[in-house]
């Protein structure tokens, strides 16, 4: 078996060198992904070149928790994976990766969304707020504090998403009744079953007028 510690181990692969050299070349010329695909149509039947092209990263300017980032990302990288795997902001959680649980909830320009279904590159120029950006220094956001006081979580894995959703919920003004809070928090699944405490935490924040 080949030495797997070396990525370039498949020397028997005739197409291999083509791909490698193409990679080097395209890297040297910088990102071309924004270029119309026609540019590489000539090489369309050349599997490796096509792959190499589309794998080329794209520039992305994004502000996360007040910090501006100029990045290069693959188009297929989701905002969630960008946050967790590249920016080491692991507070935003992956629970399903398909928009079915809400653990990945973040704010984009102040609006709560599921970051697992958002391509990172679609967020060019946008302001992202994650759970790490909610507290100001040592001062917790009132919602964070309320979640602690009302024990609105157990394992803590859905908590970031719950809190991001709850903060948005209050801003949206959807706290007129327990039923409304419950309904509009239903995009965040908590398997530990902390729902009733989550509702109490939200009611508390709402009642305190914060």
């Amino acid at each position: 078996m080949a030495d797997y510690s070396d990525n370039q181990s498949h020397e028997e692969d005739l197409e291999h060198s083509t791909r490698r050299s193409f990679f080097k070349q395209s890297t040297a010329f910088g990102a071309i992904a924004l270029t119309p695909a026609a540019l590489v149509r000539a090489a369309e039947h050349q599997w490796d070149e096509k792959i190499a092209d589309v794998f080329e990263k794209m520039p992305l300017n994004i502000e996360v928790n007040g910090v501006k980032h100029s990045l290069k990302v693959e188009p297929r990288t989701t905002l969630l994976d960008l946050l967790r795997e590249q920016l080491d902001l692991t507070g935003t959680k992956k629970g399903c990766d398909r928009g079915q649980c809400g653990a990945c909830t973040v704010h984009v320009n102040g609006v709560r969304i599921n970051s697992c279904l958002s391509l990172a590159v679609s967020n060019e120029g946008k302001k992202i707020t994650t759970i790490e950006g909610l507290a100001v220094g040592d001062n917790l956001h009132p919602m964070q504090d309320a979640f602690i006081r009302h024990d609105g979580f157990q394992c803590g894995y859905c908590t970031s998403g719950q809190i991001m959703s709850a903060v948005a919920l209050v801003k949206e003004g959807r706290t007129h009744s327990r039923e409304q809070i419950s309904e509009f928090m239903s995009g965040n699944i908590c398997r530990c079953g902390a729902y009733s405490n989550i509702v109490k935490a939200i009611e508390d924040v709402k009642n305190s007028g914060l």
Binding site: I113, N114, A168, L169, E183, F184, G187
Partner: peptide, 12 residues
């Protein structure tokens, strides 16, 4: 609209 999906998905 409000019967569909979740608030986060409806925002997207």
């Amino acid at each position: 609209f409000n019967a569909g999906a979740s608030p986060q998905l409806r925002n997207m």
